[in-house]
Structure formats: structure tokens, C-alpha cells
Design a protein around this nucleic acid. Sequence first.
DNA 1: GGAATAGTGTCTATAAGACATTATACT
DNA 2: AGTATAATGTCTTATAGACACTATTCC
Lengths: 273, 273
Amino acid sequence: MDKPCDRVPLTLLLAYSHYIGKHNFYRKWMIQTMYSSEQEYLNNYSIHHYDIPLLSIDIAIFTLIEGKLHILLVERGDYPFKGVWALPGGFIDKQQDQDLHACALRKLTEKTGVTAPHLEQVETIGNQTRDPRGWSVTSLYMALIPYSPTSEFVEAVTDARWWPYEQALELDLAFDHHQLIETARARLKNKTAYTILPIHVLNTPFTLTQLQQTFEELLEKRIEKKSFRRRILSADLLEEVGQGLPEGGLGRIAALYQPNSNCDKHTFVWSLT
Amino acid sequence: MDKPCDRVPLTLLLAYSHYIGKHNFYRKWMIQTMYSSEQEYLNNYSIHHYDIPLLSIDIAIFTLIEGKLHILLVERGDYPFKGVWALPGGFIDKQQDQDLHACALRKLTEKTGVTAPHLEQVETIGNQTRDPRGWSVTSLYMALIPYSPTSEFVEAVTDARWWPYEQALELDLAFDHHQLIETARARLKNKTAYTILPIHVLNTPFTLTQLQQTFEELLEKRIEKKSFRRRILSADLLEEVGQGLPEGGLGRIAALYQPNSNCDKHTFVWSLT
DNA sequence: GGAATAGTGTCTATAAGACATTATACT
DNA sequence: AGTATAATGTCTTATAGACACTATTCC
């Protein structure tokens, strides 16, 4: 075996001590122990000595177009499942991506141009059968973005397309992506019942009626108007920013709202059953 | 390049078509396309051509010992962090493990002997700095099991030990496991507010007072007796199975309960704020 | 009877559901 | 005036919280 000290990359050591952070015990432990056999272990470590599964990321990106839930799918350009519709996603780039979340954000931005969406991890699925290449794991993310018909970023990405959610279910999708989009949809519906999540698929400002219709679309259920308004206003998550008609332009002028500063923190607010 | 048909393992093809399942479109697509270039791609595919991150599983196993929350930790026998306390876990065995959940269950059973616990995925964490070996991903699971002082399986596993949760926080743990146990603890607390999850750390049968004390321990908060009993009984998740004194043996005899058949399905019940 | 714990009765406070009513815009 | 939509008033219903009270056990 080689001598330890002259072979460990400095960057690795720095990264390591960065993680260790404030745990002083470990600083000491690292200095005392690492430069003996632990160090040696790391020098000789190679990931390719192990039989590890594939790891990828997939993102269910939702938006609202004309009041209807849509999901972004891409037509796969490579094997396996070349030419088949699938969730956007792919592999981690160890150089570019700081962490899993950053990886998901990078892939989302590549497809949509959106840089500050709502992005959360839904579930990580791994088994022998989901990928023809063998044991494979994917970390499923869900993103919510507002739809902008003017800056048509998505249309410029030739392989990407918005599908009405129900239509997407009818497609034959790559891998287990049919299952994945149902999982993400279930999470979306669930959290809509007790958070203000749906706000992220709307462009600001919006009227309370628009917001309610969005909730109803995502919940697949009517909500009583008075109850909805009582709840959302008493939660103190919105601020009024003038008055206006949305687009149809009929009837009384409505108050316009946008999320206020509490909105980021208080994602969790209430339960609508 | 080699000819495709004589090189693809039959098992792979079977696993693949099993996944495809009822999607007939894909059966056809597979037959038409796979035996040309897709097939060729898979023949030449090797995971070692790619620079992929490490993937592991860690499990936060909770139980209740004398009314107090405990967590199972193991002393690491190998590098890195040899001799340091850590969550039980490890790598996927592509041969043994059907899927991620089965992998977590296997590792849990190895340490505790418990075969039917409550087991759920909490979150998957991946970044450059959490493991000295480089970019690494772990899928964090949480398990709840009842404690049995009689069959001392855990004590027989020499590297494993139950720690009172608060004490575990004081330890210096391997990798980012301090963070992981806090994440799992937060999930446990959260779900205790609106599910009957705590039932899984109790031995059956139990009294309502015991159950309430368990909720209070996991929520870190007093609950009003009448409210608790009203809720839990009206949810119809328990069945009465006789009467008895728990252990202290003082005061009036209490009704004993165990989970009924609804209990599996209706994990989600109510919200205690 | 006294201590300890199990279990109930009941009033109050809060918030959701139902639904009617008023308000404001355009034609 | 007529229509369409926004916003509110208010009664009912459901449930949680507070807390006093009764019930049953052992000594």
C-alpha cells in the first residue's frame, strides 16, 4: 500500500473538514486517526470496486394553463426509450451539482428557464425492474412554476412540451414514469389541502377567485367561497396590491393579491377536507 | 459491436417485460425496437462508464423504553469513521434486495430481529461533502418498533445499542448522521400530530393513558385527556381487548386496547395542534 | 376513608359549511 | 334595468380545550 499523506487530494480534505464543521471532537479525531489507517482506506477507495445501482433524478414540473393542470414532458433523445415521452431528468453531475436539490434545479432551469420555482423532493424509488439497464434508483422531485405564454422558453426547447395532466396519463411513458407522475400528483393534491402550495402555479398578482379556482383544480373538489376567503385572509399570507379585472373582464372589479413575506416560511397553514 | 440477440440475458428481458406490464404499446415497441439499436445500446452499457455517486441507506430506528424515546445506533466496524457511532445502514445488495424498501427492511431486521415494523422513507440526501469518499447519496428511512426487554435481540448484536434520543444528540456521530436523526425526529413529531403513528412503538395491548403518554413524549407537549380520548375512540382505529393494570398497578383498572383492522389503512387521521 | 388512576359531563371557543344578501362593474 | 362577478353577514354544525366531576381499584 502507498503512504497516505502524499496521495489524498487537498480538496477532498477541505470538503471533509467543511462538513465536520463545528464538531470539534471530529476535528481532533480526524487529525489523530485519519492520517493513519482511515487515510489509507480512503486512498485506496474506488467506487468502481463496488456493484452499485444507477442513480438518477426525475422532475414532475407542474403548471396551470388556462385553469388546467399541465405537466412538462420531454421526448427522450437517447437510449433507453429513445423517442418516448418521459419526465425531464437525468444523472448527477458531480462537478456541477453541489447537492441533489441543485441537480434538480439545474435540470428544471435547462428545460423551463425558471430559476426560482417551488421545488421539493417527493420520494426516492429504487428497484430491479424499473430500468432495463438494471437496478436503478431515481429521486423524484416536484416543481411548481407559473406559466408565461409570452416568454416561450419551453417551446424553444424542441424536445419539451406541456401536456394537460389527464392527457399525460394516457401516454405511454418511459420507465415507470407513469407511476412517478401519479405519485407526484398525489403529493400535490395532498399538500394543497393544508398548505398554500397552489400559489406557485399562478402569476402575480391574482384575485382570490383565481386562487380559489386553482385550489379547486388541484384538489379536484369544489370549495365554499366564504370558507376559502376567511381562511386564506386570516392566515395573513397575502397582501393586497390594487384592484383590477383578471382577463374575462366582466362584473365587479376584484382586489388583487400577491404572496407576502410570511408566505415562504408558513407553507403549512390549514386543512381543507 | 456484437450482434444483439445472442447477448442479452434472458432474465433482464423478463424483468423488463414484467415492468412494462399491462402497457401493450410497449410490448410491441419493445419487440420492434429493442432488438435493433436499443438492444445494442443495452448490450454495451456498463455502469462503470459513468461517474456516479455512492448510494447508501440509513435507518433511524425509534422505540419507547420506559416512556422515553430511544434510537438505535451502531458502532461502525469499518472505515470511514471506524469505531464511531452511526445510524444502521449500508449499501444496496443488488442480488438480495428487490427494492429500496426491502433493503431498509433487511438492514433493520439484521439489527433488531423485528420483521414487521412501521418503516417509511423520510428523505434522500446527497451532496459532495457528507462522505469523505466523495459525492454521496443516502436514502434515510425511519422505523418504529415496540421494545421488548425479554427477547434481547439488540443486546446480542454487539455493535448496536439503544440510546435515549437526547443523549444520542450529544454524541459525535459519523457522516452527517446528527443531521439525519434530527430530520427523522422532526418527521416523527410532525406525523404524530395527525396520524396514529406512535402506536407502533407500543407493545399491545395498551391503555389509553399509555397511548396518550406516548403521544405526549413524541410530540413533546401535553395533550388534554378528554380531547385525546374523544379523538382516538371516535376514529375507530382501536378495539378493546379486556381490562387490566399496565405495570405500576395502582388505581382503577383500565380498558386495554389494540389496533384494529382499520389501523393499517387509516394512518392519517387527525391534527393535534 | 384516603390515595391514585380511569373515565365522563358539559360549557366555551374556534372554525368550517351553507346560503342568502349586498356591492360594484359593464352593456 | 339586466347580467355577471366580488365581497360580506349570519346561522348552523363540528370539534377542540378547559375543567370539574364521578368511578373503581388498593391500602
